[in-house]
């Protein structure tokens, strides 16, 4: 597979949140504002990239039987580093993401990519894979949080969209809003896919009919 494909698969076809439904916890908890979602996405991508690179580089050295504990140690170290750097340079963001920064450790996407991809591939493809998955996850977080922030508080990245606050639906930034938004987005994506499948089916049926008609007429 080409490097471009390694990158793009994480964004659409294998989007970790929308397609694989992994890493749900942060996607529900911190998507109350677009800024938080972006911050979380960047932190997550950083950890995923670093862990993918190191694990793919060490894949021949790490003994098979203790690979999982090794991966966990590597991932946890990068998470801790991210946590410290964030606290030092972006204290506001660190405060609003709170406990979900250390919890990147147990985000199934990262361990999943380490096990499924980085442990079997060289450094460059693993880098592209991590970048694609990270960007895909960030994009998904931003989409969810856009709906929640705009509908819930009438702002987008802190800028006012709807001036009249009586029209903001508070429930969207409360916990239920997270579940509703993600549920509706997944449903919408399913709808799109079902349509596509239907269309393809109809197209092939039409083709078959034409073929049959053609064969009949030529006989």
């Amino acid at each position: 597979m080409s490097l471009g494909k390694e990158f793009s698969k994480g964004i659409l076809r294998e989007n970790p949140l929308f397609r694989l439904t992994l890493g749900m916890c942060p996607s529900l908890a911190i998507t109350t504002s677009v800024n938080n979602a972006l911050g979380m996405g960047v932190a997550f991508t950083g950890v995923l990239l670093a862990s993918n690179i190191v694990i793919s580089a060490l894949r021949k050295i790490i003994p098979e039987s203790i690979r999982i504990p090794c991966y966990i140690v590597i991932i946890a170290s990068f998470v801790t580093l991210t946590e410290m750097l964030m606290q030092a340079y972006l204290p506001e963001l660190f405060a609003s993401l709170g406990i979900f920064i250390p919890l990147i450790v147990v985000n199934c996407i990262i361990l999943g990519r380490a096990e499924a991809f980085a442990s079997k591939n060289t450094v460059v493809p693993s880098f592209m894979d991590g970048l694609g998955m990270g960007v895909g996850y960030t994009l998904a977080l931003v989409i969810v949080s856009t709906f929640r922030e705009v509908l819930g508080t009438g702002t987008f990245m802190g800028h006012v969209v709807f001036a009249d606050s009586t029209y903001s639906a508070l429930i969207m930034i409360l916990p239920p809003g997270g579940f509703i938004t993600l549920g509706c987005i997944l449903g919408f994506l399913n709808l799109l896919q079902n349509r596509k499948v239907m269309k393809n089916r109809q197209a092939t049926q039409l083709k078959l009919k034409q073929q049959v008609a053609h064969e009949v007429s030529s006989n």
Binding site: P176, G177, F179, I180, G187, N190
Partner: peptide, 13 residues
Amino acid sequence: SLKGMPIALITAA
């Protein structure tokens, strides 16, 4: 389209 995960999430909501 809502079968499976989407309706589960809405129920959770």
